[in-house]
């Protein structure tokens, strides 16, 4: 493929359009696989899902065509390295939420996030997690009687 052809394919709308087409095709296949249920005089259960998936597909096609016709900048990476590391931290936090004592989890997550975001102030790295943990405990557990995961 020529360099120009490659840059055309990397245009923002082309890439987003193709992603939508892919999503639309996959969802349409999934929607056609929905069982029909008992025969009755009503719409099949996959009617509205199919309208949406075909709509997504068509939006993807329009966006791709628009991207191919109108010159525009190439798509950039949606996430930089710092955001990626923070995203990984978020995922770890969400996965651990039910399994780890919420107090310990907050005391680990908050300073880790602050460090990744560039905070180097030791008082802040100590005070913020403690205040956040006490705030969550006071507001959710004590005031609103929410049962959060604890080890003791």
């Amino acid at each position: 493929m020529t360099a120009q052809g490659k840059s055309t394919l990397l245009r923002e709308d082309v890439v987003i359009g193709l992603v939508l087409v892919g999503l639309g095709v996959a969802a349409t296949i999934a929607a056609t696989g929905i069982a029909q249920g008992p025969q009755q005089r009503t719409l099949p259960p996959n009617t509205v899902p199919l309208i949406c998936t075909i709509g997504l597909l068509l939006c993807g096609v329009f966006l791709t065509i628009k991207g191919l016709l109108v010159p525009q900048k190439a798509i950039g990476l949606p996430i930089d390295s710092r955001q990626f590391s923070i995203l990984i931290l978020f995922i770890a936090f969400f996965l651990a939420f039910e399994h780890v004592d919420f107090r310990l989890l907050i005391l680990v997550f908050v300073p880790a996030c602050k460090l990744l975001m560039g905070c180097r102030s030791w008082p802040q790295l100590i005070i913020t997690p403690v205040v956040t943990m006490l705030g969550v405990w006071g507001f959710f557990v004590q005031l609103f009687k929410v049962f959060l995961p604890t080890w003791m």
């Binding site: 936090f93 919420f102 969550v136």
Partner: peptide, 20 residues
């Protein structure tokens, strides 16, 4: 208020609220 304060606090509150 710095973002390194807002982001972790909001994420903790969001997860707690969703879990509740």
């Amino acid at each position: 208020v710095p973002y390194h304060l807002i982001v972790p606090v909001v994420v903790v509150v969001a997860a707690t609220a969703a879990y509740a």
